[in-house]
Design a protein around this nucleic acid. Structure first.
Lengths: 186, 186
DNA sequence: GGTTTCTTTTGACCTATATCAAAAACGGTT
DNA sequence: AACCGTTTTTGATATAGGTCAAAAGAAACC
């Protein structure tokens, strides 16, 4: 899904607005397994995924990676707090497949927010959508058994779940990869 | 903290704007343990808490209440998805103390959003703040031991943690009240 | 102030999931 | 197609935290 089409699904931008907004994004091809943000860096860019996918994760003290979120086609990908509050990121962000993204800097994003009331509205809508998704995951993690969490995953990211290594999914769901493997078996 | 003061901490509204915006909110006194939203209802109002506190929770199939979030002074309280997307609420919302709140309907909120670009911006900032808080909780729940989660709670809601029943806190942290009791002991 | 009801603590036992270790399967490369 | 590194599966064992039950402590109410 390309950026303009996505924007139109949420807000009725005029062709001129759409043109201007799009011009602030830069289309980029990013190979698989590219690090976009590292821990402690301040996130400079927000990415809209036209094709491919990514994930955010962090490193525990023992060195284990823990997937925090998956980002699929038609979503914005970033280390949210770092990008919007220009604070050091707790997370790493990486692509998991060769991807086509539209990137935009924090400065340009703020510019668009102040230039277009509609853009601000889009920001609010996207934030709330993300918020409700995170809340859903929280509920899954907090109250469900490992098997139920896996079912939640299949519902939330049906396409992603078989495209990425088992270990990424297991840590995303707050379980070990051995446990996930046993669950999958049946 | 009253509403106008709070609004000014985020956005430099003019006195006239502040006056107009405030006029759409209604100040209400709500007694302790009042249900503001029930499961399956569509949330009609958003509340800003001037004094007191509340929580959202839901009922598991076995009838147990699970606290989903605590709302303290100077925060907006609602069943987010239900209010903003006018969908049936998954949660119950209740006051835990006698409270003074400013309430506003979904229609009036939308009106303010479209009338004031600044208000839309406020909505975005508040959403993102909430999003980062929920993400923090998610991390606590997903990767930390029961004891560490309790420490997270003390940091996030220092004042709240000794004002509400143990059971509310335990379920908020994804553990049983027996476990929390044992942790507190030492 | 004594009774009822709700909340917290304590104890004994159990289970889902973690950990550790090794084998098997898979994927990319020459 | 044989090799090497990565990912997944399997098995044995350990443990954090859950469950159930009952006692102790607080709070609410007449």
């Amino acid at each position: 899904m390309n950026l303009s089409d996505f924007l139109l699904t949420l807000i009725p931008f005029t062709p001129a607005e759409l043109q201007d907004i799009s011009s602030h994004f830069k289309k980029e091809n990013i190979p698989k397994n590219t690090l976009l943000i590292e821990h402690r860096q301040i996130s400079k860019k927000l990415y809209f995924i036209e094709k491919g996918m990514g994930r955010s994760y962090y490193l525990k003290e023992d060195g284990k990676e823990v997937t925090q979120w998956f980002f699929g086609v038609g979503k914005f990908m970033s280390s949210v707090d770092s990008f919007f509050q220009q604070s050091p990121s707790l997370y790493f962000l990486e692509t998991l497949e060769d991807s086509i993204v539209y990137s935009i800097s924090n400065e340009r994003m703020d510019l668009l927010f102040s230039k277009y009331h509609k853009m601000e509205q889009l920001g609010r809508l996207v934030s709330i959508e993300m918020l409700t998704k995170v809340v859903n995951k929280l509920n899954a993690i907090q109250f469900q058994t490992a098997r139920e969490r896996y079912d939640y995953m299949l519902a939330e990211f049906p396409d992603i779940s078989y495209r990425v290594p088992l270990g990424h999914i297991a840590s995303y769901l707050g379980m070990t990869q051995e446990t996930l493997s046993r669950i999958r078996r049946g």
